[in-house]
Amino acid sequence: MSATHPLIRMRHVGKHFGTFKALNDINLEVTKGERIVVCGPSGSGKSTMIRCINRLEKHDEGQIFIGDIELTDKLRDLNAVRREVGMVFQSFNLFPHMTILKNLMLAQKLVRKTPKAEAREVAMHYLNRVKIPEQADKYPIQLSGGQQQRVAIARALCMKPEVMLFDEPTSALDPEMINEVLDVMIGLAKDGMTMICVTHEMGFARSVADRVIFMDAGEIVEQGTPDTFFSAPENERTKLFLSQILSH
């Protein structure tokens, strides 16, 4: 994949749940190294959109390409695609019955068939990266929310993905722990990781994003660089949303 060839392409993507249209004519291209923030009111389809990218949700209309591979039902090796797309969830979703180290090593061994010693090295490397190497032998329940989310990020990074998806990574955290997670994400961005981040943290968007996308009612309403997006939004709905979240 070259620098100009898009990593992710979504063309006229639609999805409905029963009669409810969650996504409507979504068109999006993400190039390598881009940092994208997606924002919008609840129910706007932001989570659904990124969950379609690693096929945790199946899109009903349109096409989604990861690199050159199209996501369809006939896709033989979906897991091969998922190896390249890392995901961090709002509720962390660490494996509760495994130590932190095992959490980081499991997918490496099972999916990338990495030998145990190497997997452990990679795990400790990323655990150091997120600044909690001393927690390696603890169980998730013994860690704070912020620590758990950092482990979750490390776990996704251990698979050395091409792109990282973040689904409201700080929404379930107590306020004092949000920054430690955002710091890790900013570090990742600085190192050039391609990322799509659904979040309400506008400070993060302003400092890190190449592009900010606003979604409402299943559609991409507006997108632009952080400067233009925050200071001069064009669409009425965008203006309304920004006034609601930025007022206090």
Partner: peptide, 23 residues
């Protein structure tokens, strides 16, 4: 079993049998 845990397994690329066995 919490669905989120299984989704995390899916997102990491674990196949159905692996998720059932290890998670």
């Amino acid at each position: 079993v919490d669905r989120g845990i299984l989704e995390a397994g899916e997102a990491l690329g674990l196949n159905r049998r692996q998720r059932f066995t290890y998670l």
